[in-house]
Simulated scan of single mutants.
Amino acid sequence: MNPHLNLVTILACGLMAGVFFTFSSFVMKALEKIPAAEGISAMQSINVCAVKSWFLPAFLGSGVLCLAVTATTVGKLDLPAARLMFAGAVIHFVGCFLVTMVFNVPLNNGLAAVSANAPASTETWSDYLSRWTMWNHVRTLSSFVATLLLVMGRA
């Protein structure tokens, strides 16, 4: 197990936990309180900015780092620290990275195709808010638990 790899992975997973926590705790609630057309436009803008910001390399990097931790610990699962590191890396990869790719990104792509002022947009927005936020809660919890396990494994 590489202590530098482990430390950077902890920081990356913790960073992702913070980003997702922000959306779960107040961003999505704030967007829900404004008119649907404004919420849709705001979220469409957030989604465009997210992939053009430091979020994307941080997000992708956390997934790659977790794969690297998994690879460096899989042969050492007889050690308690390695089991914790392995579990944390797998939880983050599945609960954050894969959930994002399988659920949140398709929802974002669907929202991108919506005209904010279309008659059916209010219903689309309500469904999006519910489903996207639920999957974001999964990402938040997964990233937090992963960070905790990674820290425990490094200690």
Rank of each mutant, 00 (worst) to 15 (best):
A37G: 02
G61T: 13
L149V: 07
L107S: 09
V138L: 09
S115K: 12
E123L: 13
S25A: 14
N109M: 11
D127M: 04
G39V: 08
S41R: 15
F103G: 05
G61E: 13
N136M: 07
R154P: 00
G153I: 06
T133L: 09
P80W: 09
G63E: 08
L79P: 00
L98M: 15
I40C: 04
S45V: 00
V105G: 03
F55P: 06
N2R: 01
V90M: 11
G63C: 07
G61K: 08
T147V: 04
A89K: 01
I46P: 12
T70E: 04
S121I: 02
A81E: 15
N2K: 00
T122S: 14
G88T: 08
L150C: 07
V8L: 15
N109H: 11
N117L: 06
G63F: 12
A68R: 00
I46H: 10
H92R: 03
F103W: 07
V19R: 00
F86T: 02
V138F: 10
A120K: 08
L111H: 03
L141Q: 02
A50C: 11
V74Q: 12
F103Y: 11
T22P: 03
N104S: 12
P80T: 06
T133F: 04
R131W: 03
G14Q: 05
V27C: 10
K29G: 07
N117D: 15
E38F: 13
V99Q: 07
K52V: 00
L7I: 11
L111P: 03
M101L: 14
S142W: 05
A146V: 05
L129V: 05
C13K: 01
S130R: 14
V145K: 05
P3D: 13
L111T: 00
